[in-house]
Design a binder for these strands. Structure first.
Lengths: 362, 362
DNA sequence: CACACTAGTCGAAACGATTCGACTCGAAAC
DNA sequence: GTTTCGAGTCGAATCGTTTCGACTAGTGTG
């Protein structure tokens, strides 16, 4: 057979395979395989000969694809993040979850295939999942409550785990009691005497714009954690005015906050529950620009428990350990991939009172 | 053959393959393959029969591993980030590069296999690269100037591209003139009359601690872009005092800045060149805490051109379009994977003067 | 009516490894 | 002296596709 030629016309030498190495070392293909996998008993002298042959032929080790096919495992876990990559990782909490998850995947060991659900192009994610070589799929971040990808992945016989979404009996979860934690936070504020409470939600639906949200909007929310947290607020403060932020960024929190705060002082909420720390930072910033003092005139709360050194406050927030959450997800998918049956687990949060909440002014 | 049984003892039905589908549809294996790949002429009626059979057997499409093996392409590109995942994405500029890169990989199309160079565990990355199924490797972020991984990857016959690192004739680059841009920035300051200039570098070596760096430290730096930027400063201001930050975070910039600023006012630099916008933000913050006014008492410059809405200044900085850089990297690896010969390209930057630099006080 | 051509289909040969069972051979056990 | 055993090695089957070349039947051309 002549050497293969690629489009550019350059001669491409035939690839060296384990067969070539075995031939050169004067052993059988199977023995050579045993040397590289270290799985069987091989005489030291034989092993050396094989390795020497590999060296001479500059054989770089067994082809991952062939190896994977034979072994029936891709050695890879698909991880789906919500939104474009640059946005998905803008949230420090998301980063800490991913960090913990990455550590566990390393330990399996498994590679991490990163897939993004680009807003407005759901088909792309489905297509990628259909052809992706992976042994498991993780949804580590808040995503849509229902997801057609689940059918597809289950159809391929691959285990899935999530962090609250997609909601499906076939998807074991590391589950945070968003609603309960959010209700507890709101109760903290009512206990301080706040009666007029505003709420800034994360986006309730993909492509959300900054807007006032009705109870129906909340109930119909696509994103499960935003929905849960909003419901928690409404459980305790049914009259709360709810504003949806357009993204998780500080600027979005500012914009949303203005909808609540830029009004007559006596109609203005005395407390704002934000669904994330970054949104809370935006609220505080917007308050500052409007001359509203925190916490004297306005109490502000967040969610996640981030370390925000540049914030001049110690934010009252709901602390969850993102890295631990990521690790828990990693352990869950590892067990599922090992064929063990796994079930959803509760993940703890803790209310931490800082300097951004105070008793309501009389 | 009896149904395979896994460790847990649960019966696992034999996997349905294209062969089963073909048999059920009453066509040959090759024809069935043609239906799914859409590569050959197939009668519409035949195609329908095959698809119907697939539906009935709940066949989810060709196995990616087998398909990849046969086609000789993994459909995946490995992307190496520096440091733990949570840290690597803490830098907004890194995120924008990754975002642009992800977009181009989608277009190839290719999956993105994310690998992290965890500090202190170089072996892990090597091991992962040795067994990872991928058609190309991208080093989109600043990494060590030399990297043993290059030999490994080249040995496997896989193309590599980078953004300035690793420095190796076999690695085409999207290259920024770090040194020139940094020198231009420093010249901006000397033109404003600054004579005593401080410099805050990104980590020069893995595991760096906050510390004063000598010219030799700079010359020996492991990380290429930190080295280039520092050399640029020293080109114009050879007497500049150089302090190395321990990370890319704001807090690290603050710590480093104190080493320069917490001193007698007449010995203190009148300008600080920081190697990134986030470090610059830390410098500004540290100055504020020390009662040093920016820009009246101290000019501060950054690098990258991030959008920092929470910073009360318009930072003087070197703007580079991270997303475009990521796209350029994606195009480069795409061409290399297509067998075309590719070569390094220059990537433009632009000096943008903001409100953090002013003429030196007399 | 012979001819070339195309659309449609198929069988068989890869792709590059892993793994199972069988075989050989010398050493230890009885 | 036979039997047993384990270490070491090997041949062959297998993983699930894609693709190449060959084949058939029908269609249009001369």
């Amino acid at each position: 057979m002549p050497a293969a030629r690629d489009v550019s016309g350059a001669a491409r030498p035939k690839r060296v395979t384990l067969r070539d190495v075995a031939a050169r070392a004067g052993v059988s293909l199977s023995t050579a395989s045993l040397v590289f996998s270290g799985r069987g008993p091989v005489a030291a002298s034989t092993a050396d000969r094989v390795r020497a042959a590999a060296e001479q032929l500059s054989y770089a080790g067994p082809d991952p694809l062939a190896s994977s096919l034979r072994q029936g495992r891709a050695g890879t876990v698909a991880v789906v993040v919500e939104g474009r990559l640059g946005d998905a990782f803008a949230d420090p909490f998301a980063r800490s979850v991913m960090d913990g998850l990455a550590g566990e995947l390393d330990a399996i060991p498994a590679g991490m295939l990163l897939l993004a659900r680009v807003p407005g192009d759901d088909a792309r994610l489905l297509g990628q999942l259909a052809v992706a070589a992976c042994d498991g799929v993780v949804f580590p971040l808040s995503g849509p409550r229902t997801d057609p990808a689940v059918d597809l992945i289950v159809g391929r016989g691959i285990p899935i785990v999530g962090a609250g979404s997609p909601v499906d009996p076939r998807v074991p979860q590391i589950r945070v009691d968003e609603r309960g934690a959010s209700a507890a936070m709101t109760r903290h504020l009512t206990t301080l005497g706040h009666r007029n409470i505003g709420h800034v939600t994360m986006p309730l639906t993909p492509g959300a714009m900054t807007s006032v949200a009705t109870a129906a909007d909340v109930a119909d929310a696509v994103y499960g954690d935003a929905r849960g947290r909003a419901l928690g607020v409404l459980d305790v403060a049914p009259a709360a005015r709810v504003v949806q932020a357009a993204s998780l960024e500080i600027a979005a929190g500012m914009t949303a906050a203005r909808l609540l705060l830029d009004t007559a002082p006596d109609a203005r909420p005395t407390a704002v529950v934000a669904q994330s720390d970054l949104l809370a930072a935006g609220v505080i910033r917007a308050a500052g620009e409007l001359g509203i003092r925190v916490p004297e005139d306005l109490s502000v709360t967040g969610f996640d428990g981030l370390d925000l050194p540049w914030l001049d406050y110690d934010l009252t927030t709901v602390v969850q350990d993102g890295r631990a959450k990521g690790r828990a997800l990693g352990e869950l998918i590892a067990r599922a991939m090992a064929g063990q049956s796994v079930s959803s687990q509760a993940f703890p949060t803790q209310l931490r009172v800082g300097t951004t909440t105070a008793v309501a002014r009389p």
